[in-house]
Design a protein around this nucleic acid. Structure first.
Length: 931
RNA sequence: GGACCUUUAGCUCAGUUGGUUAGAGCGUUUCCUUGACAUGGAAAAGGUCACUGGUUCGAGUCCAGUAAGGUCCA
């Protein structure tokens, strides 16, 4: 076997093993028969436009950890990868490219433009998946999906047709969030509220019947005044008693007299208590307008430029310029009373990052199915959120859910499968038309006589395709494809890993989609447009369990920079993960990012933790190297083979202690996986491996390996610990653990780590017991004392500037039992402390000393010691211990404590006091001896 | 306006049913190139656990309130 090289070079190791895994088909998810449980994850599909961010690194590392651990635990694991067509985002990117050549999508037309987008996707769409491979993601790449793949599109359109026929989808003219840049409607979820410092204008409207009398309103949007159709006041507002029903003049825009109306929804406290009503440009105004039968006067073009209805002075002016112009016009006409600074919240388009316009348009709407069952699924624990608190956010959203605007005025996406009979006026579509197959055709195939029909131009919201991800990626709705993909076996999936920012966009909607569509196939109404008014019966609990898309949802934190800002492309504060992989290795990056990602908290990114990840890998590498250099490899082919090499009769306290810690760590890691506490798992493994194994066991090994009597057992212990540690670490750092596993010959020849099974604590105990090995807890306790002894002796040396000297002599005054413990470990102790010898004495005079749990250690420096300094040090220590004694005594003197505290605590306190008093007495004796 | 989260060492954070003298990594100081590892080893300094009250024999931990910062929903 080749020797492990002196330094760890991640690049070669990573490339080699990823290739080997792929070649062996190690990531393939196969439906297994009875007795083998599935473990399924579907990737949150990254935007096809995307490149890997730190968020992806965290998210996908977590999924990879789960899926690799699942393989090690014997599950049939499947991780389905893929990408999302990301309607607006992708179209925007391609249009931006076109704009560089001074072209727009309209220069090409729908078909040609879509060809361009597909070409772009062909070229750039695989980048992010390639990057995930660098990270080590063990997805079943043969199953890679795209939300615009033919079969996936079929799923999306099937769902549309089905929900249309069930009457959940309708067309309506409503206020929508309109993005003037993308020129499409957006769902409420795609609107980001931002605080904006702006101006509020106080504007007065003159009464028609009483010239010189005015009603004042406050508005942030004077450019919409030409669209005003009324002024509203509260019916009980005494200030306006007698004004209701009178008319005022619109101060700008086409001349008009508009009524003062009374509406109870007006807030009397805000501004002057009078509100201008502009139904076409404000949701609340629209509702008031509806109640009062007022017209909606839309003064904006779709692109945000004011139109002719705004009047000749404003027509053709862009909306923000129009605002200034409107203010000027008002001022000229004496209608502007005042301008005040004003901070309010404005809705911005998520993608284009410009203020949205409330706009009245015809759109397709979806009444969500299975809302009640979706609540129950989470409330009753069929789906568990981690951390649990997100379920509250989820439930709150479902309580207040609004119909979903699913149509987008884009070209890139799933074109809505609706055809209108030629000549039908889309602007006057009624529910009766929708129900009439002679007027509106809805199907996957389209009408048989296409020449008589016109297809809907709009496409579906991207999320109206990704909400089907957990089952559309498993072949739904095609029966043969479902069989091939193993939907029946792998669904419901096990765990979803995602960010809380898409809890509404995606998580909630997937749950509703799963509940609606994962039942036994319900035949669609074969003919016609369906649209029954009946409501589907509530799902039973067992139906619910079978239909949910996943059982656990793990919400990651958001990765922030050092200043706590979100990482974003525009701020340029996000490191490129590929650079980090080059610098620290994929394993180092994975280990580092997980170690700083506690459950449920946002993550402050620190590159030094990634460096720490690399350092840990290097430590692991070198510890394995030390094992290899220490002696011949024994039979490492299986755990039992290694255990068979242990010689229980030759165990010393250190052997017991390291096995005890290995068992505890095995248990702790298992607990962390159950509780989704990945950073705790990593920290536990770090502490165990670095402190317990390397700093202590490997160091004491150096003596044990010198002795032919203990060498073989020591090597077997090292193999046992390294094998199990590699198994526990493998999900977190797969590459290096695979390399070392192979180098040290653990497991069967020619097999991977994941062909082995990770033993849990009980299994480990059983195998040890079968090999005649039991852990002696008394021995474990004595190692703690030995560690303290070594540490204190080293400190004593350091304090006298002898840290690096290895020739000092140490004397110890110890009780018989303590000395026996020391005497049994002399070679190790002198080596660890760096002393020439350690001998027992009955008395020592005037030498610096330290009190340890195994006796008092003296440095043989009687002649050179600075008695003054030593006196000060001892006095300080006595002061400290006296304080602690006082604290312990106070507790014990409290009768309530003595009578109420549990016996174990009481006993502990008494022992503590005794130990403290003994130590103090010893320190005082030392001080006195100094003279 | 409503909900949630955070506040512990210079920095970033752990701290799992309340129980010895509150931990880690990084940074800092001193020493060490001793044959696994300087991507390392040894030692050390550094904290009135945001504040105020309460419950308790006992509170970083539980409860109430206050302050500051953050997130989401209106």
């Amino acid at each position: 076997m080749a020797e492990i090289s002196k330094s760890y070079e991640p690049r070669d190791v990573e490339k080699k093993w990823y290739g080997a895994w792929l070649e062996a088909g190690a990531f393939a998810g196969n439906a297994k028969g009875e007795g083998v449980e599935p473990y399924t994850i579907v990737i949150p599909p990254p935007n096809v436009t995307g490149v890997l961010t730190m968020g992806h690194v965290l998210n996908n590392t977590l999924q990879d950890i789960l899926i690799r651990r699942a393989r090690l635990e014997g599950f049939s694991a499947l991780w389905v990868p893929g990408t999302d067509h990301a309607g607006i985002a992708t179209q925007t990117v391609v249009e931006r490219e076109l704009r560089k050549q001074k072209q727009t999508r309209h220069d090409f037309g729908r078909e040609k433009f879509l060809e361009k987008v597909w070409a772009w996707r062909q070229e750039k769409g695989g980048i992010i998946l390639e990057q995930l491979r660098r990270l080590g993601a063990s997805c079943d790449w043969d199953r890679t999906q795209f939300t615009m793949d033919p079969h996936y599109s079929r799923a999306v359109l099937t769902v549309f047709v089905d929900l249309f026929r069930k009457g959940n989808i309708y067309r309506g003219k409503r206020m929508v969030n309109w993005c003037p840049v993308s020129q499409t409607a957006l769902s409420d979820e795609e609107v980001i509220m931002k605080p904006v410092n702006g101006t509020i204008y106080r504007v007065r409207y003159e009464r028609v019947d009483v010239p010189g009398q005015f009603v004042e309103v406050k508005t942030t949007r004077p450019e919409t005044i030409p669209g005003d159709v009324a002024i509203a006041v509260h019916p009980d507002d005494p200030r306006y008693a007698g004004w209701i029903g009178k008319k005022v003049r619109r101060p700008i825009g086409p001349a008009a007299e508009i009524p003062i109306i009374a509406d109870a929804s007006v807030d009397r406290e805000f501004g002057t208590g009078a509100l201008k009503i502009t139904p076409a440009h404000d949701k609340v105004d629209f509702e008031i307008g509806q109640r009062h039968g007022l017209p909606a006067v839309d003064v904006l073009h779709a692109n945000g430029v004011l139109n002719e209805l705004a009047g000749p002075e404003l027509a053709g002016v862009e909306r923000f310029a129009g605002r200034k112009k409107a203010a000027e016009l008002l001022r000229e006409r004496g209608a502007l009373v005042a301008e005040e600074a004003y901070a309010n919240n404005v809705g911005y388009s998520e993608r284009a990052d410009v203020p949205i316009e409330p706009r009245l348009t015809w759109q397709w709407w979806l009444r969500y199915p299975r809302i009640e069952e979706a609540k129950a699924a989470v409330r009753d624990g069929h789906i568990r959120f981690h951390p649990e608190r997100w379920s509250k956010v989820y439930l709150h959203w479902l309580e207040n859910i609004q119909d979903w605007c699913i149509s987008r005025q884009l070209w890139w996406g799933h074109r809505i499968p609706v055809w209108y009979r030629k000549g039908l006026d889309k602007e006057k579509l009624s529910e009766a038309d929708l129900a009439d197959p002679a007027q509106v055709h809805v199907s996957l195939e389209g009408p048989a006589d296409p020449e008589n029909w016109v297809q809907e131009d709009d496409v579906l919201d991207t999320w109206a395709s990704s909400w089907l991800w957990p089952f559309a990626t498993l072949g739904w709705p095609d029966a043969a494809a479902m069989e091939r993909a193993g939907l029946k076996y792998f669904y419901p999936t096990t765990t979803l890993v995602t960010g809380p920012d898409i809890i509404f966009f995606w998580v909630a909607r997937m749950i509703m989609a799963g509940l609606e569509f994962m039942g036994p196939a319900e035949p669609l109404p074969a003919r016609g447009n369906g649209r029954p008014a009946t409501v589907a019966p509530r799902l039973t609990e067992s139906e619910l369990k079978a239909r949910i898309p996943f059982r656990h949802v793990y919400f990651t934190g958001i990765i922030r920079d050092q200043q706590g800002r979100k990482m974003s492309k525009s701020l340029g504060n996000s490191p490129d993960p590929l650079d980090l992989i080059d610098k620290y290795g994929a394993d180092g990056l994975r280990f580092g990012i997980i170690s700083i990602a506690p459950q449920g908290q946002d993550i402050r990114f620190q590159e030094d933790r990634i460096e720490g990840g690399k350092n840990f890998c290097n430590k692991l590498w070198n510890a394995c190297r030390f094992r290899q250099m220490s002696g011949e490899a024994g039979d490492n082919s299986a755990l039992a083979a290694i255990v068979a090499r242990l010689e229980a009769s030759k165990f010393d306290a250190d052997d017991h202690a390291i096995l005890d810690r290995l068992l505890a760590t095995t248990r702790e890691v298992a607990r962390c996986f159950r509780e989704f506490e990945f950073s705790a798992a990593v920290q536990g493994l770090y502490g165990f491996f670095w402190n317990d194994f390397c700093d202590w066991y490997v160091e004491v090994s150096k003596s044990k390996l010198q002795d032919p009597a203990t060498k073989a057992n020591c090597l077997a212990i090292q193999d046992l610990v390294l094998r199990q540690t590699l198994l526990l670490l493998h999900p977190f750092i797969p590459f290096i653990t695979e390399e070392l596993w192979q180098q040290l010959g653990y497991g069967a020849a020619g097999r991977f780590v994941e062909d082995a099974r990770v033993e849990d604590e009980e299994e480990l105990v059983d195998v040890l017991q079968a090999g005649g090995v039991g852990v002696d807890t008394a021995a474990v306790a004595s190692v703690e004392k030995l560690k303290a002894f070594v540490s204190q002796a080293r400190a004593l040396k350091a304090e006298h500037n002898l840290a690096s000297r290895r020739d000092v002599k140490l004397f110890v005054i110890a009780a018989e039992g303590d000395w026996n413990v020391l005497a049994g470990n002399l070679a190790k102790l002198t080596r660890m402390i760096g002393a020439a010898e350690l001998t027992r004495r009955d008395s020592v005079e005037g030498a610096p000393a330290v009190v340890t749990p195994l006796g008092t250690v003296y440095l043989d420096l009687a002649s050179t010691v600075d008695a003054g300094a030593e006196r000060i040090r001892l006095t300080r220590e006595i002061e400290q211990i006296t304080k602690h004694i006082a604290g312990t005594e106070t507790r014990l003197a409290n009768p309530a404590f003595v009578s109420k505290a549990p016996p174990a605590v009481l006993e502990g306190a008494r022992k503590q006091l005794a130990d403290q008093q003994a130590k103090k007495a010893e320190l005082e004796r030392l001080l006195k001896a100094l003279g």
